[in-house]
Design a protein around this nucleic acid. Sequence first.
RNA 1: GCGAGAGUGGCGGAAUUGGCAGACGCGCCAGCCUUAGGAGCUGGUGUCUUCGGACGUGGGGGUUCGAGUCCCCCCUCUCGCACCA
Length: 837
Amino acid sequence: MEREYDHKTVEERWMKEWIRGKYWAAPDFPDPAKKRYILTMYPYPSGDMHVGHTEIFAIHDSIARFVRMHGYQVLNPLGFDAFGLPAENAAIKRGSPPKEWTDSNIAIWRSSAERLGCSFDWDRMFATCDPEYYRWNQWFFLRFYERGLAYRKEAGAWWCPKDKTVLANEQVVAGRCERCDSIVVKRYLAQWFFKITDYADRLLDDLVLNTGWSERLKTLQRNWIGRSYGAEIDFSLEGIEEPVTVFTTRPDTLWGATFFVLAPEHPLAERLVSGTNKEAQLREFKQQVETMTEIDRSSTDRPKEGMFLGKYATNPVNGEKIPIWVGDYVLMDYGTGAIMAVPAHDQRDLDFARRYNLPVRVVISPPDHELDAATMKESWPHEGAMTNSGPFDGTPASESIDRVIEWLEAEGMGRRAKTFRLRDWLISRQRYWGTPIPIIHCPRCGEVQVPDDQLPVVLPEVVDFRPTGEASPLATAHEWVEVACPACGGPARRDTDTMDTFVDSSWYFHRFLDPHNDEEPFARARSDAWMPTDQYTGGIEHAVGHLIYARFFQKIMMDMGMVRDPEPYPNMLNHGVVTMGGKKMSKSRGNIVEAGTALDLYGADALRLYMLFFGPPEQPIDWPEEGVTAIGRVTFPWLQRVWRLCEQHQRSPELDSADATAQPSPDGSNQDGADAAILELRRHIHRTIKVVTKDYEQFSFNTAIARLMELVNHAYRYQSEWPGGPVLDELIETLLRLLAPMAPYLTEEQWHRRGHETSIHKESWPDFDPALAAELEVTMVIQVNGKVRDTVPVPPDIAEAEMKQLALTSDKVRPYLDGGEPTKIIVRPPKLISLVV
RNA sequence: GCGAGAGUGGCGGAAUUGGCAGACGCGCCAGCCUUAGGAGCUGGUGUCUUCGGACGUGGGGGUUCGAGUCCCCCCUCUCGCACCA
């Protein structure tokens, strides 16, 4: 008998055996009724794992193993998100190629994942920096290009001065680079975009298909896409021939438009002042706006700056001439970059009007008070009846917007419209370590696609990949850049930008299903066999990045006939972040707890259980300041307790007689109370199966562990009073199977020590006996005026009459009845009876 | 400002349809055991108490025989979006 669980020896033995025997290999074409694709977001292999990373693996792997024990064919793959800035920055620091650093980290991560006991099918592993993988990024790019979904335009883009690259909208958080926190600046560059806005409606509307998403996640995406309904209205501007359109959600306020505002960057602004004495002034104003950081510009406290352009616009509904201004509060890339200003009913317009003494006109009447245009400081942005609006005076709020839109359409002045907050996805990066964009720029032919048979466009190896802040580092690889134009054969140059790494992760989940295909990204039949994923796990921080991009790709792939399903991830579990001292764990902050240290000291099972026992998976975890020793006080001692329990009760010979555990009192002893104790323990075992199964199904691992702790406590109490016997065998064998998904090593070892020849992870999940799991006795609560006065043990099928009888004759209850009869009796069999006096 | 979520012991957190608040664990207290140890085992641990009980889930009000749970108002915190027209 071994008193101590020696996790090192045990883990080493089973880790090797599981890998040697390819225990977690999944078939390419599963039985459709039995397939379960259990996916976790593939990691970025930087440095080594810290405990924050292990949380997701603990959650995900417990789900995979739980499902597998229910007889499903489980696909559980892992790959690596291997392109990107950290590898490049590390390479610059070390003076070695990014591939070396990346490969060595992948090896470290894979071995950490193996040590942690993750049941991945490693035969499907890939890294996105493999040319065999990224050639398909290029293939997708070309297909998108052909469909008009990839385009290049000169546009203002967020530029991170530290990382020296442009960023997608999604990578800018509160005006700062998501990665390094630097304040971003706007730069005007020719950039590649994916036209995600074409899919905005579908991305929004199809959210309902994701029935296994939290409301929180759906809301994040809804807000990000930000669909607004309203109208486009055409104004004519002095000196401009074509009509200029504004978007508004409040066409009912059109009669209150007292000025017109363009974004400073709007090309029309320059045209309007061209040849006037305002040219220089506008140039100065624009410069002033451009040098402002996004943080300053978007601050609502800052007074709005503007400039009159000296020209007038005509309000189409009343022919009124209203002055045209530029204002820094109008954004070029939302709506049309031009607005009609209605100061009485929009606070921003009112602030601007008061600052520059522009007129204010009330056109919506609040239901309960009067607005005074001359003095009002707060706009009235709410609904109300229309007033000062010509033919629409008196139109009630409920129909005003629709009626105005219909009228505008009939008059040819405007139309119903909607607009989105979502912007096209900027995928160009001026960095080295990414997928080269498969386009060749020819002086004669323009943009030319790299022909499919020349894919992949492999990253050149010998290149100075330090970012210059000017062109992409790839521009310095002259031999690579200079090529013959595929169309005309003349001299031409490759595009030197690389793709955002979120392109890689937008379709990787299909590649796992066909990881070695060199004809196409993946075969449709193989994708159809496993998709959609049955459970996806990953951090909530990807809500508006990866989780939107991948949905966008999925929809394009569906339109191309490559996949069957509209949504790739209908069931999503978002775990919380792991912090220490309230800050996200990161090496640079120095607040990390190394996974390796935890594994060395306490082993994989203790670490996994610790992460799972902390609380619900969605909730953030703030790791105790004491660091790794926290595990030594919580789950490590408990695992030892489980180990000792198992060791003290080796498998009994009786178990081999078929129905030994089916006997309610297998002991058969004549000792008083022995049979009762056995029965009570068996009831506890079967109740535990029932509730723990439900806990797993709801990802409530913390309560599942709590129930198992109770069961172990019960076993210890039982054995201190009674000899062992088959009931403890039943308990231990059940306990091991219920614990196996969360603590795979100890349970596997004990399973074999108990004489089993096959892996516990291939065992079936225990069933409970409904008769045993049912409550034998419940506690009936007797309340008087809502307060508990007595509790009585009763059978669960007790009759109401009997409950009343018990309540009225209770010695503890009688004093509260004042000798009289209760005026009302509420009976909720079998648990509660409430007397009102 | 808009949207979402959350406030429960010293701490992490439990609590079917409204039905014994505080499961389980950490910490703390007491005891046992011991080659006296940051090991193991047992018990206790919301607050107050005249030991009968009373009070108790951010605050205030309401519905109900009964509210952590439902409704209204307020406060605080977290997250997301944010001059989005």
